[in-house]
Lab assay of single mutants.
Amino acid sequence: LTDEELVTMSVRELNQHLRGLSKEEIIQLKQRRRTLKNRGY
């Protein structure tokens, strides 16, 4: 997933992508998404 996709994707879509990932990967992705959102994309 690109940063842009992460930010513009709805939470529902995101959760579908996260299905099948490990807990660590999910946590990393969610942190990255929060960081991007805070940057004001």
Results as ranks from 00 to 15, higher is better:
1 L>N: 01
9 M>T: 02
26 I>W: 05
33 R>L: 14
2 T>N: 04
33 R>E: 03
34 R>Q: 10
5 E>K: 07
36 L>D: 01
5 E>G: 03
16 Q>M: 13
17 H>R: 14
18 L>N: 02
35 T>F: 15
24 E>W: 11
29 L>R: 01
13 E>M: 07
2 T>M: 03
40 G>D: 11
4 E>V: 08
20 G>S: 07
22 S>I: 03
22 S>Y: 02
41 Y>K: 12
15 N>R: 15
29 L>F: 04
11 V>T: 10
10 S>H: 04
41 Y>N: 13
6 L>T: 00
18 L>W: 05
26 I>A: 15
11 V>Q: 10
32 R>F: 01
37 K>C: 15
23 K>P: 11
34 R>L: 07
38 N>Y: 09
15 N>K: 14
40 G>S: 08
21 L>V: 04
21 L>N: 02
5 E>Y: 05
25 E>Y: 07
38 N>H: 09
36 L>N: 02
13 E>N: 04
25 E>S: 07
28 Q>A: 15
19 R>K: 13
7 V>T: 06
39 R>I: 14
18 L>Q: 02
16 Q>T: 08
4 E>K: 10
9 M>S: 02
22 S>W: 01
2 T>H: 03
12 R>Y: 10
41 Y>M: 12
7 V>I: 12
20 G>Q: 06
28 Q>D: 08
33 R>T: 03
7 V>E: 06
13 E>R: 07
18 L>Y: 09
20 G>F: 09
16 Q>V: 11
15 N>Q: 11
7 V>H: 04
28 Q>P: 02
5 E>V: 07
2 T>G: 04
28 Q>R: 15
10 S>Y: 01
34 R>A: 11
11 V>S: 09
23 K>L: 11
1 L>T: 02
23 K>A: 09
8 T>D: 06
37 K>R: 12
1 L>K: 02
13 E>C: 07
37 K>Y: 06
11 V>F: 09
21 L>Q: 04
38 N>T: 08
29 L>G: 00
13 E>T: 06
33 R>D: 00
24 E>C: 10
23 K>H: 10
22 S>R: 08
36 L>V: 03
12 R>F: 09
27 I>D: 09
4 E>Y: 15
14 L>M: 05
1 L>R: 02
24 E>K: 12
29 L>T: 06
12 R>V: 08
34 R>D: 07
5 E>I: 07
26 I>M: 07
10 S>L: 03
6 L>H: 00
30 K>T: 07
3 D>A: 03
1 L>I: 10
31 Q>P: 00
30 K>M: 15
16 Q>C: 15
11 V>K: 14
38 N>R: 10
26 I>K: 14
12 R>K: 13
2 T>R: 04
14 L>D: 00
19 R>W: 05
19 R>T: 07
7 V>M: 14
8 T>K: 14
8 T>F: 08
12 R>W: 11
25 E>F: 06
6 L>S: 00
22 S>C: 05
22 S>H: 04
1 L>M: 06
37 K>T: 05
9 M>F: 03
18 L>R: 01
15 N>P: 01
32 R>A: 01
7 V>A: 09
15 N>L: 14
36 L>W: 01
36 L>E: 01
28 Q>W: 13
15 N>H: 11
34 R>I: 08
39 R>G: 13
8 T>M: 11
36 L>R: 02
11 V>D: 13
26 I>E: 04
30 K>S: 04
23 K>N: 08
5 E>W: 05
8 T>G: 11
38 N>A: 10
30 K>C: 13
12 R>Q: 12
3 D>K: 01
22 S>E: 05
15 N>A: 12
35 T>R: 14
24 E>R: 11
25 E>Q: 12
40 G>K: 11
38 N>I: 08
31 Q>K: 13
32 R>L: 04
21 L>G: 01
24 E>S: 13
16 Q>G: 06
6 L>K: 01
32 R>T: 00
28 Q>S: 11
17 H>P: 00
23 K>W: 09
17 H>D: 00
27 I>L: 11
3 D>I: 03
40 G>N: 09
12 R>N: 08
24 E>Q: 12
33 R>K: 04
3 D>F: 03
16 Q>F: 13
41 Y>C: 12
1 L>Q: 01
14 L>F: 15
9 M>I: 05
10 S>G: 06
31 Q>D: 07
25 E>V: 12
39 R>V: 10
26 I>Y: 05
41 Y>D: 12
24 E>T: 11
17 H>V: 11
16 Q>H: 10
14 L>I: 05
27 I>P: 01
2 T>W: 02
8 T>H: 14
37 K>D: 03
40 G>H: 13
41 Y>P: 10
35 T>I: 15
16 Q>P: 03
24 E>I: 11
17 H>W: 13
25 E>W: 04
31 Q>C: 08
13 E>D: 07
32 R>N: 00
3 D>S: 02
14 L>W: 11
14 L>R: 00
24 E>L: 10
16 Q>K: 14
1 L>S: 01
8 T>V: 07
27 I>E: 11
30 K>N: 05
10 S>K: 04
15 N>T: 10
23 K>F: 10
34 R>T: 06
30 K>L: 15
13 E>G: 03
7 V>F: 09
5 E>M: 13
38 N>E: 14
22 S>N: 07
32 R>D: 00
20 G>N: 09
16 Q>R: 14
34 R>E: 09
24 E>N: 09
2 T>Y: 02
41 Y>E: 12
40 G>P: 07
7 V>P: 01
29 L>I: 15
6 L>W: 00
36 L>T: 02
7 V>S: 07
2 T>E: 03
16 Q>D: 10
19 R>V: 10
31 Q>G: 06
7 V>N: 04
21 L>C: 06
34 R>W: 08
10 S>M: 03
12 R>S: 10
17 H>F: 15
39 R>E: 14
40 G>L: 15
39 R>H: 11
31 Q>M: 12
